[in-house]
Nucleic acid binder design. Structure first.
Lengths: 200, 200
DNA sequence: TCCGTTCTAGAATACGGGTTCTATAACACT
DNA sequence: AGTGTTATAGAACCCGTATTCTAGAACGGA
C-alpha cells in the first residue's frame, strides 16, 4: 500500500532518551536525534508533529514501562508484601534504568494533559487508572476507613523511593546499598503504623 | 567615585526567580528579566557575564538562604530535637518559599563547581562546609562509630522532606497537613533506629 | 505499468534569545 | 569645571534550532 518505514517510532524515542540521558533534555534536539538515528529531520517530523510532543511521547512510554513492574509487584496477595515489593521495585527499576528514571521526573501528567489535550488527552486519561486503582485497593486493605490512606501509601511507595535515589540520578553514581535498606525500613515502618479512622 | 547603580544585583535575581517560578527556568531569559525589572540588557550583562552564571548565582543565593534556618535548627543542644527541628524546617521553608524551593533542585554544587570553577569555585567550595560539619557532628552523636550515619541523617533531614513536598512544588498546590506529619514520623523512626558500628 | 499512499531526504526558512557594541549619563574627587 | 569611573541604554549582531517545503523513492494494488 505504501512505502515501508525505515525508522520506527521507538528507534527515534530511544535516540532521544540516550541524548537526554547525557546532556539533559535540551540536548535532545531534532538535529541531534536525526544525527543519532540517521533519520532525516523530515522523517522525524513525519511522525511527531513537534519536538515537545516527541518528548512527551517519550515520557509516556517511560511511565508505561515503569508501571508494568510496579503493577506486577502490587498484585501480591498479601497487602504488606505487595507494598513492600512495589517500593523495592521502584528503587531497583530506577537503578537498572537510570536513563529512563531521569525522564520520569521531566513532566507531570496534568501539565501534559493541559497542554496537549487534543493530541495526548485520551492516552493520558487512562495512563494512571490501573495504578490508582491498585493503590486504592491496597490502601483500603491496609488502613480501612482512613481517608488519608492513599496519601500514606503514595508517600511510602513512590515519594520515599524516589527520594532515596534522586541524588544518585542527578550525579550519575549508582546508589550505595544502604539506600535500598533505608527505603525498606521506612516503608515497613509506614505500613506498620496504626491510624484512627478519619473518614470525614 | 562613579555612577550609582540603579538596579541592584538582588533585584535582578528576584526577577529571575519570579520568572522561573512561573514558566520554569527557561522563562527567565535576559529579555524577560530586562522587561520585568526595567533594567536594560546591558546593565544585566554588566553584572552577570552570562545568563547561565546569573542563574547559578540565583541558585547559590537560594541555597544560602535555606541553609540559614537549617543551621539554626541544628544548633539545638539535644541531637534528637535538633534533627527533628531541621527536618521540620526543611518542609516548612519549602512551603513558605515555594519559588525558591524549586530553584534548589535546579543545579548541584559539583556540576556548577566543575563548569564555573574560575568564577564560582571559591564560593562553592565553602557553600556546604557549615552544614556538613553540623551534620557530621550530629551523626556522630546519634550513631557513634557508624560509618553510614551521615547517609542516614541526610536521608532523614533532606531527602525525605524533599520527597514529601516534591509533588506539591511541581503542581503549585500547598501540601496537605499530613505531609508534615509523615515527615516527622519517618524522621523520628529513623533517628530512633539502632545500628551496629560498622567502622571499617 | 501506472497510481495512490506513505515515507525518506535534506535544503531553505523563521525566529527566539544570548551576547556584543557604542554612546551617553551620573556621580566623586581634585 | 574637568576627569575618571562605573552604570545605564538599547540597537545590532549572531547563531542554534525548530519547523516548513519541495522533491523524490519504495511499496501494494488496479
Amino acid at each position: 500500500m505504501s512505502r515501508p518505514a525505515k525508522f520506527t517510532e521507538d528507534e527515534i524515542l530511544d535516540a532521544a532518551l540516550r541524548l537526554a540521558a547525557e546532556g539533559g533534555p535540551s540536548a535532545a534536539t531534532i538535529g541531534a536525534i536525526s544525527g543519532a538515528t540517521g533519520a532525516p529531520v523530515g522523517s522525524i517530523y513525519h511522525r511527531f508533529s513537534s519536538r515537545e510532543l516527541l518528548l512527551a511521547r517519550l515520557w509516556i512510554r517511560t511511565v508505561r514501562r515503569f508501571q508494568e513492574g510496579f503493577l506486577e509487584a502490587l498484585r501480591d496477595a498479601d497487602p504488606n508484601s505487595a507494598a513492600l515489593g512495589a517500593a523495592r521495585y521502584a528503587v531497583t527499576w530506577s537503578i537498572e534504568h537510570f536513563d529512563q528514571a531521569r525522564i520520569l521526573a521531566l513532566y507531570r501528567r496534568e501539565d501534559l494533559a493541559a497542554q496537549w489535550s487534543k493530541e495526548l488527552g485520551d492516552e493520558l486519561a487512562v495512563l494512571n487508572v490501573q495504578v490508582e486503582a491498585a493503590l486504592k485497593l491496597h490502601a483500603d486493605r491496609l488502613w480501612p476507613g482512613d481517608s488519608e490512606a492513599i496519601q500514606r501509601l503514595v508517600f511510602a511507595l513512590i515519594d520515599v523511593p524516589y527520594a532515596a535515589v534522586r541524588r544518585n540520578l542527578a550525579s550519575g553514581h549508582p546508589p550505595p546499598p544502604i539506600i535500598a535498606e533505608l527505603v525498606e525500613d521506612v516503608c515497613r515502618f509506614l505500613l506498620a503504623q496504626e491510624h484512627e479512622s478519619r473518614t470525614t
